[in-house]
Design a binder for these strands. Structure first.
Lengths: 146, 146
DNA sequence: CACAAAGTGGGGAAAAGTGGGGAGTGTGAG
DNA sequence: CTCACACTCCCCACTTTTCCCCACTTTGTG
């Protein structure tokens, strides 16, 4: 389970440290790819395996073909250096709009990496916003039970 | 079952002692997150488990993605030091408006942490307010049943 | 009143994060 | 074919943060 938000710097070489708490839960075989809303996502092996349902075949709908190409085409296996950092490629940094700072966020089953501005919009929610969002979860749960 | 209100100090390192009565009911795996109305909440593992249904994947709808990011990004697993204290991150203290003092309140199934000012507003309710609030709940329940 | 338990505060070792140098590898131009 | 350049890793050094430990104060209890 990945929890919490960490603000780390990205150096001139595109390196960013993954929080130690996360790293110790990430075995080799972890994959980084592009995610929705312009973030990058780190999939632990078992989560990545869950995405294997997305396949190309003669019966695959057009949108799924497109999604599959983007997801898998952008994916790479994570490689940590001695200090627990990974290198974000120029392409990945451009996609996520990351320059000097990255926010690394644990989202339960996977990890997301955001640029400064976009994450602030999500993470710095006021108590009022937060309350509203939480009520939505409650509401949704109730709807699902029925 | 968590009951009672405790006023504890928060030191320069952001540490706050959790009352011993509460602590002995909190196994490892307890999670602290942001709560409604600007408080912080401690979820014992069995309570937190209810929130776990929310997962990210290529088929997760947009509003769920947002919820998951906020909820899990704001959460952290509690780690007690030898004196039974937890560290409130700078982010959590800012959200809850906590500086030197925190009120730790047992609310049946979970624990809340409030700043001085906000808690006084809730805790020092007059008999009249108390009655009015109780009637509101009764009214709401009645409306829902129909 | 004495003892035990709970809460508070601070110092220091260890861990985590940051930045940069330099060797090794591969590519492309001359 | 050779050299220059770029890029990737690996390693080292420094800074910052975390957390572990000790000691003191306060509260509660027999």
């Amino acid at each position: 389970m990945f929890l919490g938000t960490y603000r780390h710097s990205v150096d001139a070489k595109g390196r960013v440290a993954i929080p130690a708490r996360f790293r110790e839960q990430l075995p080799t075989g972890t994959v980084i790819s592009k995610g929705a809303e312009g973030c990058l996502q780190l999939y632990p092996p078992q989560e990545w395996a869950g995405e294997q349902g997305l396949r190309l075949g003669s019966t695959t709908p057009a949108e799924e073909r497109r999604l599959a190409r983007m997801m898998f085409g952008a994916a790479r296996e994570c490689e940590f250096d001695g200090q627990g950092r990974i290198v974000l490629s120029a392409d990945q940094r451009q996609y996520a709009g990351i320059t000097n700072v990255a926010w690394i966020v644990g989202v339960n089953n996977l990890i997301e990496i955001w640029n400064d501005e976009q994450w602030r919009r999500i993470g710095e929610a006021t108590p009022e916003e937060y309350t509203r969002i939480q009520d939505q979860v409650v509401e949704r749960r109730r709807a699902q039970r029925t």
